Amino acid sequence: MNSILKYALIAAALGAVVPAHAHRAWMLPSATVLSGEDPWITVDAAVSNNLFNFEHFPLRLSGIGETASANKAANERTPSQLQITAPDGTQLAGENGNTGRYRTTFDVHLIQKGTYKLALENARLMATYTENGERGRWIGELEDLQANLPGSADDIEVVQSNSRMEVFVTSGKPTETVFQTTGEGLEITPLTHPNDLYAGETAEFVFTIDGEPAADIDVNIIPGGNRYRDELGEMTLKTNADGKVDITWPAAGMYWLEAELDTTEGVAPPVTRRRASYSATLEVMAL
């Protein structure tokens, strides 16, 4: 094989693999710590190769007020329901929502004092199979699975997936009401308040899966602005037996945190694999 063809094949193989890992979904608030009597934030939501840059497609959201659908072709997935939890536990709606070519934006009026949580949660069941030598796929609810699988299907894999994306914003004094967990999927319990993070200091977070400690899972932390760096600057840590991870922030700025669980343990047929993920955008202040 000549060298030109060899490197062309390598590049093609990398091109088929890298985008699946490089595209990251995120929400970016204009601020995470605010004061004053009538504060607002604006939030950008997108999927991109470079963190917090708009260059791939928008996150389509519902629950953000009037939304323009200028670019449905860029992201045909069903919009995710945005959940905004106020410090007293009540649910709010986003305002002034708009979906453009590369990002979705919306505003949040922080009427109450305390900590708010902005969250996107998704759960789905996906089955893949082989029928007459060709691969097929079906996505739906567990109770509808058997009725939608071909009778001659082989090599069936059924994946139960849960994903959660969160942002925390505080107006005035931090509170902790929004940290209550549901006991479903991969969740975080902050031992250090996520709006009290400082460069050079160590924050402690506990991860749980279905309410139990998520031990020995990878937690990846990437600083924003990787478009302007030669290296990603990623930190990869592991939770301990209690699901706890300690993160020492190297510098001030916006960070994207992600944890994932991919396992065949503890699943009940017909499910063959369980996948759960958690991500958050965090702001680290300078001392």
Rank of each mutant, 00 (worst) to 15 (best):
P39Q: 05
E166L: 06
A259Y: 06
R135S: 15
T236Y: 00
A12S: 14
F179Q: 07
I217N: 03
A203C: 06
P223C: 01
I221N: 01
G172S: 10
L125W: 01
A20L: 09
Q91W: 09
P87S: 08
Q146Y: 03
V47S: 09
G224W: 01
E55V: 08
E212G: 05
T208R: 09
F205H: 04
A123Y: 11
A8G: 15
P223T: 00
G97A: 01
T67F: 11
A259C: 09
P87H: 06
M285W: 02
G183N: 03
L261M: 10
T104L: 04
N240T: 06
D218C: 02
T170P: 03
I4A: 13
S279K: 02
M1Y: 10
A119N: 03
S152Y: 04
V43D: 02
M254Y: 12
G211L: 02
Q112K: 14
N71E: 01
N220Q: 12
A251C: 03
I156Y: 02
D107T: 11
V159C: 00
E131W: 04
L34F: 04
Q146M: 08
G266V: 03
V284G: 05
S3H: 13
I10Y: 14
E143Q: 12
I209Q: 13
W138Q: 01
A203I: 07
A73E: 15
M254H: 08
Q91N: 05
S152T: 15
S3A: 12
V178A: 11
A22F: 10
W256E: 01
E260S: 13
I156A: 02
A13H: 03
E166K: 06
Y228A: 01
D196Q: 05
G253C: 04
T105F: 03
A280G: 10
P269Y: 05
V267N: 00
R135P: 05
A252R: 09
V178R: 05
T99Y: 00
Q146W: 02
E231Y: 07
S48A: 15
G224V: 00
L5Q: 09
L59A: 15
H109W: 06
P194C: 10
Q146F: 05
D144A: 15
D210I: 06
T42R: 12
A93L: 14
E131I: 14
D107G: 03
W138M: 07
T32Q: 05
E283I: 03
E187V: 05
D262T: 10
P194D: 08
N220Y: 01
R124P: 00
E134D: 07
R135K: 14
N226W: 07
A280I: 04
V178I: 14
D144F: 13
A8F: 14
A286F: 07
N122Y: 08
L287P: 11
S69T: 12
G15Y: 05
G266F: 02
A12Y: 12
Y198M: 08
A70R: 15
D246P: 00
Y102P: 00
M254F: 12
Q81I: 12
S161A: 15
L287T: 13
R124D: 13
S35Q: 11
K244T: 13
N2K: 08
G151A: 11
S277V: 07
L14S: 09
L257Y: 05
A286N: 12
V178S: 10
G136Y: 09
I139G: 00
M1H: 11
M27Y: 07
V267W: 00
E121V: 15
N75H: 12
Q81M: 09
T281E: 14
T42K: 09
L237P: 10
I221T: 10
